[in-house]
Structures are given as C-alpha cells and as structure tokens.
Simulated scan of single mutants.
Amino acid sequence: MESESLKYDLKKVPKNRLKAWFGNFFYFYVMYLLSLQLFIYLIYKSLYEKSLVSGAILAFICTYQFYFAKRSETFIKFIKWLNFTQIFEDWTFVMEEPIQEKNSMIAFHPHCIFNIAFIWNNHINYEITPLASRVIYNVPFIGIFIRWLGISTVDAKNMKNKMKKGQNIGLLPGGFEEATLTSTQENRVYIKNRKGFIKYALQYGYTVYPSYAFGENKCYFTIEKFLSFRLLLNRLKLVGAYFISKYGWIPHHNFGIHTVIGKGIKLPQIVNPTQQDVNKYHEIYLEQLIQLFNKYKKEYNQGDQILKIY
C-alpha cells in the first residue's frame, strides 16, 4: 500500500445526496428495523393465528440464513455504491502505517450504536474479516444482511479458527457495554476488563492495531441515566443502549466522522500466556489507544476532552 493511499477524505469525493439518503434508508430501515418488524409479524401470524403460510415463509428464510447465507460481493458492491456515509459533513480515514497482509487484528473504538465506521471501513479501505456479536448475527432476517456483508462471529471458537490461518480480523472489544456507554458529551470506551482479544493475539503472534472513530458518538441522542442498570442488562445479553435521532434511525449528519488506525503493536507469540503476560500487553494496548486519541483529538474537533476508560 502506497503512503498516499493511507488517507481518505470524503470532501474530495463528489457527493450524491439523493443516493446517500436512499442508502441510509435502506441500511438503517430495511436492513434493521423493517427486517425486525417482518420477523415479529411472521412469528405472530405463525404462533397466534396459526398461519401455515407465515410459518412456511419463516422456516424458509431462517433455513436460508443459518445454512446458506454467506458473504456476497454483489451485495457489498451495492452497499459501496449507495455510499450512505456521504450524508455526513465529512468522512476521513487515516492509517498511520499499512496493515500487514496476515496476522493482523484491528481493534475498533468506540462501538456506539450501529458502529458505522467499523462496518464501512472494513469494506472500503482494506479487506479483513469483521467479527461481531453472535446476537446480531443470529437475529432472523437481519442476520442475512450481516452474513452478506461478510461479517462473522466474535466467539472464541471462530476467532481461534481464523487466527490459526493467520487471517486478518477486525473486532469491537468494547462490545454491547461500550454501546451502552455512548454519550454525545464524552468519549468513552469499555476496555479495562476486556482482555480476551489480547490473550488470543498473544497465542497466535498477532499485531494489534488500535483504532478510534472520532465523532461517531454524536450520531444519536442516547439515554445516559441508569447506567449501572443498563450495564447489568448487558451481562444478561440484553440491549442497554437506547437511542433516537431527529430522523429516527438515520443518524445525525451535520458533523464529520474521522477514523484513525494507529501503528501496530507487535505481540510475541506465547502459546500459553500467563495472566501477567495478558495484563502487560493489555496495558500497552490501552496506553497506545489513549495516545492515539490524544494525538488526534484537537484535529478532529474534540477540544481538550479526555478519553474516559471504563
């Protein structure tokens, strides 16, 4: 990868607002909201009204999702063509160095609501396998779109299988808890006790790249009260983030989203890392993430904010 390709700025790209708005409607309403409503409707018709037709449709779609749906280059090209990020005032992407061709792990922050930067950058700026929660992966109907995007699950078995092969992967270490912490007023990450990704990176000798998307926390109004209770819901694998924008599920867009991927942290391969090993390199990762945030925060309109660590 040439050095000039390490930075991408949407301001330099001609915008098609109408297509971008259609892309947002498709991505946030068709892929998520309408798909969920269709699933609930078919469940209701099948169980309450005993509709054989609805039951057959539900069974057919779920069978396709769980046994046949997979990454679709055609669907990914369609999402790229929609380019829904063009509704934002600006969209930049910076890599401090090229990503290795194998044995690379990109750790994204913050999760926020729809992790827009995570999904978009995976398919536009480099080719990695994005890993996400099994919950969203297995939600009927929504899971079809997730599979078409080439997203896989972040569970231990799947991660180990991919890392044994040296595949490059991207993940959101903060998970649901980091989504729950989303605040328009502060930059927050949930990482203190998230160390599993470091353990696996040590076991397979991966290079870990810390990444931060400045501005994504402003996409939605969120409920910030009752945080302890909402984090408790996350432990039960329930949603703890509640959000809305003035456009419903389509995000606010009168600002920029700026993603920076920092320099890689080359970890030694330790087949059986001790807790001390994990703690040591987790601390290095955390220091690098904070340094990355502090380095770019003024450039990307965060003023003197500090990165709050949970």
Rank of each mutant, 00 (worst) to 15 (best):
I99C: 02
N121M: 02
Y44S: 08
A201L: 10
T85I: 12
N193M: 12
Q37S: 12
F114P: 00
Y8I: 03
E283Q: 14
L267P: 02
A156P: 07
E101F: 10
F26H: 10
I124E: 07
P251M: 01
N158T: 13
N272S: 13
I106T: 09
E299Q: 15
Q100T: 13
F66S: 08
L10S: 04
K225V: 04
N125K: 07
E224I: 10
L58I: 07
N24E: 11
M95S: 09
L172Q: 05
F75R: 06
Y27S: 10
Y29D: 03
E299G: 02
D90P: 00
I191M: 12
N103I: 07
E216G: 03
I76G: 01
K225W: 13
Y220M: 06
I136E: 02
G175V: 10
F39Y: 15
T182V: 08
G205C: 13
I309V: 14
Q167L: 13
K77P: 01
K297A: 05
I284K: 06
S133D: 05
E101G: 14
F114L: 03
I106K: 08
N16F: 11
L34C: 13
A156Q: 11
M95W: 10
M163T: 04
Q100K: 14
G166C: 09
S211A: 15
G166V: 11
I169F: 04
N254A: 08
L202A: 10
L202S: 08
G166R: 05
F229S: 10
E283R: 07
S245G: 08
K297S: 05
Q302T: 04
N103V: 07
K246G: 06
I142R: 01
I151G: 00
Y204W: 12
L307M: 07
I261R: 01
I284W: 06
I136R: 00
F78C: 11
F22N: 05
G166N: 06
K199D: 07
E101D: 14
V53T: 11
R188Q: 15
Q203E: 15
E89D: 15
H253P: 01
V239W: 13
Y67F: 15
A59R: 06
Q288C: 11
F39P: 06
S211C: 14
L6P: 05
K263P: 11
Q269T: 12
P140I: 01
R235C: 12
P140F: 06
S228M: 14
S5Y: 11
L52T: 06
V154S: 11
W148F: 15
K195V: 08
L34K: 09
F293I: 00
L33N: 09
Q302V: 04
A20H: 08
N294E: 12
N83A: 15
K157L: 11
G240D: 03
